[in-house]
Write a protein that binds this DNA or RNA. Structure first.
Lengths: 233, 233
DNA sequence: TTCAAATATTGACTTAAGTCAAAGTTTCCG
DNA sequence: CGGAAACTTTGACTTAAGTCAATATTTGAA
């Protein structure tokens, strides 16, 4: 039974970019320091200041990495989707505590990898360094883009950009439908875009009134892709 | 003569964290693909869209990495100080062009390292991967902090934070003086803080009127460290 | 050393977006 | 299913910060 679970984990690990070049033996080794963890929507995964013991990879669902201000306001640092790791940066900073909070956005399945369990692979498996660098590169690019857009663009432009991104990666668009789904709550989206929920609501309404999109809850139909693209930065 | 210059470069390379664990032989090898470049204040180092051929390390002076909006407004992505590299992220993304602009803030001395010249060390010198990861980690932490503060804090708090940072790392403060120098133009500082020059000017004035600091050009004397700290996020 | 160009300050005004509160809608648990 | 809790929209109002323009100050090149 325990055997079965371990075997299952190895199989899953093999599908994760970070370990994609590992041999069967190596995967078995990784699986040793690895646990599958389940979280319900809104569950807290860890909080800022908690003792750091390892990082996570999203398998199913999604999570947000966030900071809290003194008066309880949120800033979303990352939205993490399946197969991407989070809290792995702190490992390389040799932090004793988590510098951010993490919370499940949906019911979520995570792989947890203990710090010590992972560390040993760094020396023995140089390829993993390269994977880590690739991952950091991706995060750096995303953060740079968001920082830029936060200082240069207004809310409408940031929203238009977000919608374009969602549309581009949407399975619906691949079927030729000009539509997309907002995968997170509007209040999370507002925070992610660096604005207030009310402003997001009004901006979506404005896009709709201008004939650019049609909103129905979290489903959005794009009526004028060209104009949406133009609004986006 | 040429010999002399190469030898000089090797000596300099040895002082740079990225190469600090290289042997003499290895440094000689690095020096082969390396050039010293001089720039005057305001000189453009590269622009977005230019063919990518390598990255730089600041030796003396400082540079800004920036993005430009369609209407010519600036967003400062990084301020780079001596011994730190820039444009090295693009190398790991395998970009064919620079994704940002770089410009000298002062008269500046840079080391230029060609892409091909550097690439070969990645395979043969696993330690360098770790250096790269450390550098990326530092950038990620800085970007995360700025993103957070841009969404959560007002200009006064971001400015207070900046002043505290400058003060903490200032050689003056180490001599027991409660003072600091703003090392860049106020208009660059405004952009870096994500605000307008006029707003920066007014905020500094307000701090002065409130008895928190005393401003004389780029020299600032801290009158009330406790309150400045409290304002900072 | 002077004076033109680059930087910075100040004032007057505008505006995008935030806040607070109330009403409407959706979700989901018992 | 039904109703409470969570989420979202809308309206009315406030505010931090942006913009534009005029003036002042600093810098640096001839």
């Amino acid at each position: 039974m325990q055997q079965e679970i371990k075997h299952e984990i190895e199989h899953i690990l093999a599908t994760i970019p970070l370990f994609s070049e590992f041999s069967e033996n190596e995967l078995r080794e990784v699986a040793e320091s690895t646990t599958i963890k389940l979280y319900k929507k809104h569950d807290v995964i860890f909080t800022e200041g908690e003792t750091y013991h390892g990082f996570y990879i999203v398998l199913e669902g999604k999570i947000k990495v966030l900071k809290l201000s003194a008066d309880g306001k949120e800033a979303i640092v990352h939205l993490v989707k399946p197969f991407d790791p989070f809290a792995e940066v702190a490992l390389f900073e040799n932090r004793s505590t988590y510098p951010v909070n993490a919370q499940a956005i949906d019911d979520t399945v995570l792989i947890y990898i203990s710090k010590d369990g992972f560390m040993k692979f760094l020396d023995t498996h140089p390829q993993i360094n390269f994977k880590i660098i690739s991952g950091f590169t991706k995060k750096l690019r995303e953060l740079t883009n968001r920082l830029e857009s936060l200082t240069l663009n207004e809310v409408s432009s940031r929203l238009a950009h977000y919608l374009m991104e969602e549309y581009t990666h949407s399975p619906l668009s691949e079927k030729g439908l000009p539509s997309l789904h907002i995968a997170i709550s509007k209040s999370d989206l507002a925070v992610y875009l660096g604005t207030a929920l009310e402003t997001l609501s009004r901006t979506l309404k404005k896009f709709q009134n201008d004939g650019i999109i049609q909103v129905r809850g979290k489903s959005i139909i794009i009526k004028d892709l060209k104009r949406l693209k133009n609004l986006s930065f």
